[in-house]
Amino acid sequence: MKRIALALFACCSIASADERRSGLLDMRPEAQAMQRDDSMNPGMLWVLDGEALWNRKPAPAMQSCADCHGDAAASMRGVAARYPAFDQASGAAFDLSGRIIQCREARQAGPPLARESHDLLALSSFVAHQSRGLPITPPEDTGIRAVRALGQSIYMTRMGQLDLSCGQCHDDHAGRRLAGSSIPQAHPTGYPIYRLEWQALGSLQRRLRGCMVGVRAEPFAYGSPEFIAIEAYLMERARGMEVETPAIRP
């Protein structure tokens, strides 16, 4: 009897458990409209730049992304929904931007793309845009599982002078007000995002650095295994939610 009651309870809590919501829904209507209308969404400027870069042939290899990958609408569809991914050859996980950096160096022999540079953000947003509307579907291999577990442990670790973990705000107090702003659930559904506070497009890692500086912690480096691990965990946490790139956020 007790067991049945427990099972029932488990069922009910699963049924009502998916209270996940994209930060899109917490914005005022004008900002939501801005994201939904491509002619108003400033993130589309980066996507369009990314499309141009996709077709450009950088010296010295004179090889464009399109020369290998063809039409991004077909070849890149769903890719961002699966990243970060574990790379067997190098034994490390790559986030989407990291994969583009690696491809640029290895295949195009082109000038390296710096993290948070315009060109890398443009290419990343162009590639991620090809997955817009698709559900986030992280891979299930053992390599990425280990990375994800590391990400979860970092997410749960208190840090900084303020001694707060990501989870204490974004799990335990999501929806509450931190000064004037509502604390989001922190689902990385639309990166790179155009953040109104930045007046620019930026990566998830830039956003994570903002939170780390906010709790007065020393941020992880761009491209570090720690940031990629957190992203892998957050993407698993957002499994099934729709890719929105390029999203608008306050």
């Binding site: 670790t157 840090m159 900084g160 002078q161 500086v213 912690a217």
Partner: peptide, 9 residues
Amino acid sequence: GLNRVGPVW
């Protein structure tokens, strides 16, 4: 007992 406190702090 604090973790990864930024250098300034």
